[in-house]
Amino acid sequence: MVLVYAESPRGQFKKAAFEAVTFGKKLADQMGCPCAAVVLGPVQGDPGELGRYGASRVLQVSDDALQTLDSQSYTQVLAEVARQVGAEVVVMSHTSTGKTLAGRVAVRLKAGLVSGVSGVSEVSGDGRLVVRKSVFSGKATAEYAIISPIKVLSLMGNAIRPEVEGQAVPVEALSVAVPAPRVRVREVRTVEGRVPLPEAEVVVSAGRGMKDPSNWGIVEELADVLGATTACSRPVADSHWRPHHEHVGQTGIAIRPNLYIAIGISGAIQHLAGVNNSKVIVVINKDPEAPFFKAADYGVVGDLFEVVPRLTESIRKFKAAQ
């Protein structure tokens, strides 16, 4: 059995949960076993919908104590559910939630863990599972064989597209004792409006070439027409031109969108480390020697203050014609 923990931060499923179930179902098919999804805590909407992404069973422990992500109580519950269903592989998402839990659950289940997995290379009859992940900040790929009887994986965001193939299934309520959380949530502050960077499919990012924070209007406009999330280089965040959560790179967030548009960013190795897993990279820079062009799929050599508004206009025309 492949057991997918379909995370629902603050009571809501996000794309990460659908990706994990889709991945779990494909893995289960390769292993020749069923895929179950488990939901922890109360959620908005019908968790049975996870059946549409390939879970043949959806289990829920809806105890209110699980509204707080406390790694100890979550681990206790996940390990108990894994034991009850006889899970051979436990799949989670490589998100802030998954990173809080994966190592802990692996130790509890005496399982081998590979985190940030982007794909499965081999499922062999003798119980070995070979998976791939990106390492050295995107500069290399590693393949790891997990040889323990129980295995834990966390799936990198945007590594797979959620696929709807089945039907919603009835939700099975599980009663598992939930220990009282030792962590208490005081407050949650979220940035409204745009899709969070780690989940974004299109990212518009700008660097020191913007000259001044007051110039960011053209970046915002381009992001708006594309439905994109904005990001920035490290010096831009360090000088407080943009908020810290926009900082991408080796010491910021690592992302893998379908489209990354870099505006006035030179493409230092530490910046590339956070973005070189993007599917398509567009670079706009006035310096034809900027190192970023070597990592780009499409390049525009020109003044960003002219090129960016022009690009926004072209996309607006394109969207209107669609």
């Binding site: 081998g112 790929t141 064989a145 499409y298 090129v307």
Partner: peptide, 26 residues
Amino acid sequence: EPVQVVKFTLPPPKAGVKLVNPEDMD
């Protein structure tokens, strides 16, 4: 050790950048 390294690989080099005329964003 429950996890073993099978192998590390370097990504294939990028095909090379396709430059687009800055006047022609269409």
